[in-house]
């Protein structure tokens, strides 16, 4: 069963007088419980696709449905609540609020729920435990290594138990060891916790950790290299 359904999506950016067609009728399904890597050169539309799936951006036309919700037609207020419930997002860098500790950063999505302080505390400790940072919870981002920062961001992305975890080049700024740690962690989240993961990456090695690899080029999926419908 497809968790993410993308139907005939067109996305056009207007940059000054230039019209940039990022997608021209993209159709794609991503199954629940899958670990999908999105690859492609710069400007191929990987991050834009991720933004459309997360409801951070709207398609010019077409439909984006995630977990049965019509993301492309929801109002901003509905989208915020929907994202809080369904989406965990990790960027390449600067994921964490520098003024908050690792613990407080991970707590952010839970502040939007009705959980009690005690319940929030249990969830945060569990999430930080999963990413192996129980001993860093009182540290501020500046006191963490790049890998630890990304793992904290992943803890924040999973702490509210979202339907879908989206990662936009999470290992792009990391050294090989930290990168491997993060990718292994994603594998574990997918296998042990059955999280549906979509990973945007340039790195072919990183993509090997995914169950499915989709190649985007000039806004289109390259035939025969993915789970395109």
């Amino acid at each position: 069963m497809a968790l993410v359904e993308i139907r005939d999506v067109h996305k056009v950016f207007q940059r000054d007088s230039d019209r940039v067609d990022v997608f021209s009728g993209l159709t794609l399904d991503i199954p629940e419980g899958s670990f999908t890597a999105l690859m492609g050169p710069s400007g191929s539309g990987k991050s834009t696709l991720l933004n459309l799936i997360a409801g951070l951006d709207r398609p010019s036309s077409g439909e984006v449905n995630v977990a049965g919700s019509p993301v492309s037609t929801m109002r901003p207020g509905q989208l915020a609540a929907w994202r809080a419930r369904h989406i965990g997002f990790v960027f390449q860098q600067l994921n964490l609020l520098p003024v908050l500790t690792a613990y407080q950063n991970v707590e952010l999505p839970l502040l939007l729920t009705r959980l009690s302080k005690k319940e929030r505390d249990e969830r945060i400790r569990l999430a930080l435990g999963v990413v192996g940072l129980e001993d860093r919870m009182k540290h501020y981002p500046r006191q963490l290594s790049g890998g630890q920062e990304q793992r904290t961001a992943i803890a924040r992305a999973i702490v509210a138990d979202p339907t879908l975890v989206l990662l936009d080049e999470p290992t792009g700024q990391l050294d090989a060891k930290s990168s491997e740690d993060v990718l292994n962690l994603l594998n574990r989240l997918n296998r042990e916790f059955n999280k549906t993961i979509i990973l945007v990456t340039h790195d072919a090695h990183a993509a090997t950790h995914a169950g499915t690899v989709l190649h985007l080029e000039k806004g289109a999926l390259i035939e025969g290299q993915g789970a395109a419908v």
Partner: peptide, 9 residues
């Protein structure tokens, strides 16, 4: 980042 997490306007 907060908006991405789900903080409303």
């Amino acid at each position: 980042v907060l908006k991405t997490i789900g903080f409303s306007d």
